[in-house]
Amino acid sequence: MMNWSEFFAMNGYGFYVWGSYGVAFLVFIIEIFMVRNRRKLALRQLRLLNESGEA
């Protein structure tokens, strides 16, 4: 089972196996980006508050 085409075929179950792992992996990546983005927005908001506070 060492050549790649057999590996991806997963003996005919490739769609189901890679459909599962692909979506799971995608979900994790999206969540990581959402969390990082939320932090960016929070910090931007705070900077605005600080600037308006000092002005």
Binding site: M10, G12, V17, S20
Partner: peptide, 8 residues
Amino acid sequence: VQSEAYRI
């Protein structure tokens, strides 16, 4: 029984 599908 399940060949490769069980890897899910």
